[in-house]
Design a protein around this nucleic acid. Structure first.
Length: 422
RNA sequence: GGAGGCGUGGCAGAGCGGUUGAAUGCACUGGUCUUGAAAACCAGCAAGGGUGAAAGCCCUUCAGAGGUUCGAAUCCUCUCGCCUCCGCCA
């Protein structure tokens, strides 16, 4: 959520900034509602003050003897006025909040101007494009040939987009998860969590899946719970409504989860094999930091996440998202994309974002600074990383002429083997 | 799922329908004392909103949402959470 004070102070600057992300944004209605609400509130406060004062007097009078009963009849109308204004104020402030929840986070000034992913900027590229002297198989063929994934089985059990991992395939998935978690735990100061996969609406509001993107999530109506599309949701909400102390910051959290996405409306492209699925595994990195440090922390996050790709000996690039491609909640975001040689395309395997205080405001996540003042923290997160696309890129990149797959050295302790044979 | 109990400030724990944002203790911060520390003593110590240059002043908040009342932490209803007992179950 953006700060309503910023709208009051300089609506134009903010609006222009927001338009870099979404042309259709307008704040004038919000400003008007805010003004109206403040008028109501200040009138209400005057009446409440009057009522409080008289109530105190009555208390005194009662303890000293009698109270004139006529006083109560005249107070009745004051009381009714207050109730009327209270309900007006409540209604309006709810409407205002609902509107505020639909306003995205403005992009940081450093974010390149652009409208679509075409305008994103490649920041760096790691690894030489590998040359192959044989006909490559794509990851689907490899999975089928080696019985790593039973796609039809998944369809039978659940439907399309729910891959059934089998044998060495299941092992590889597990190995990747453990390798990633262990790497981040060993090399950085993360605390591991294993969170609930179902969350309540308040949690989904904090991280901005709600109210705007409810269609993207699986929803359990009976219990009013949502399946998480990423562990970001549950991990970020660990500190909802908390006031942390400045010396507790930064907090670095990490967690594996299954991620559930309805992917409504994204039929067609990318649907083959493991590239776009309804359920997948992911290790997520989340940071709670002091505002001054958040952009430095973002750069670190990108480095941390990309180290995994280097250890898996995969070619990748870092892409800075342009203003128009930035997600609703992010101020700035880098994507990591891994090269899949047979697919012939870059697969997004991580988004590393700084949300500044946007999520913190929605979830009321604050800290007490050195001067004892309460401020909102900045939150960041990045995938570290999404498993199925890594799985696919790994199979395609490390395939040998004889059909076997090399297991990168870093992963071998988790697999117990140095290559996959058919 | 059934029966009962309970939800108050960072924690513990009082609280009569009326001068209670809330006793008291602990923790925390500052001061006095001390060579230093501890102890002791003194003082301060919730968040949000409005207004103001600031000091301040006003309002809201005692799990959450409604209700009764001139007035609710206190009474009523519902929801959520925790605890105990019973049932079911990985």
């Amino acid at each position: 959520m953006i700060d309503i004070k910023k709208i009051r102070e300089n609506i134009e600057v903010l609006e222009n900034s927001l338009k870099r992300k979404d042309q259709t944004i307008s704040l004038s209605k919000i400003l008007k509602m805010d003004k109206e609400l403040r008028t109501i509130t200040s009138n209400l406060n005057i009446l409440q003050s009057e009522q409080n004062q008289i109530s105190k007097e009555i208390g005194k009078m009662k303890s000293q003897g009698g109270v004139d009963n006529n006083l109560f009849t005249s107070l009745k109308s004051l009381s009714l006025n207050i109730k009327d204004l209270e309900s007006k104020s409540k209604n309006l402030s709810k409407k205002l909040k609902d509107k505020m929840l639909l306003i995205p986070n403005p992009p940081h000034d450093s974010v390149p101007q652009g409208e679509t992913s075409e305008d994103n900027v490649v920041i760096r590229r790691h690894g030489e494009t590998k040359k192959f002297d044989f006909e490559l198989k794509d990851h689907v063929q490899i999975c089928n040939d080696m019985s790593l994934v039973d796609f039809e089985g998944g369809v039978k059990i659940s439907g399309g987009g729910f891959p059934l991992m089998k044998g060495k395939g299941a092992l590889l998935e597990r190995a990747l998860i453990n390798f990633m978690i262990d790497y981040h735990l060993k090399n950085y100061d993360y605390t591991e969590y294993l969170t609930p996969f179902l969350v309540n609406p308040s949690s989904a509001i904090t991280t901005s899946q709600l109210p705007k993107f409810s269609e993207d999530m699986y929803y359990i109506e009976k219990d009013d719970l949502y399946l998480i599309p990423t562990a970001e949701v549950s991990i970020t909400n660990i500190h909802r409504d908390d006031i942390l102390d400045f010396n507790e910051l930064p907090k670095y959290y990490l967690g594996y989860s299954a991620c559930f996405r309805r992917e409504a409306g994204s039929y067609g492209k990318d649907t083959r094999g493991l590239l776009r699925v309804h359920q997948f595994s992911k290790v997520e990195l989340v940071k709670f930091v002091e505002p001054n440090n958040s952009y430095k922390e973002l750069e670190n996050l990108v480095v941390q996440a990309s180290k995994i790709l280097e250890l898996l000996e995969l070619e990748y690039r870092v892409v800075e998202l342009c203003s128009g491609d930035l997600s609703f909640a992010a101020s700035k975001c880098y994507d990591l994309e891994v090269w899949a040689p047979k697919e012939g395309s870059w697969l997004e395997v991580s988004s590393c974002s700084n949300f500044e205080d946007f999520q913190a405001r929605r979830g009321n996540i604050r800290f007490k600074n050195k001067d004892g003042k309460v401020e909102f923290v900045h939150t960041l997160n990045g995938s570290g990383l999404a498993i199925p696309r890594i799985f696919a890129a790994l199979l395609e990149t490390h395939q040998n002429k004889d059909g076997s797959i090399k297991i990168p050295a870093a992963l071998q302790p988790y697999m117990g083997i140095s290559k996959l044979d058919s």
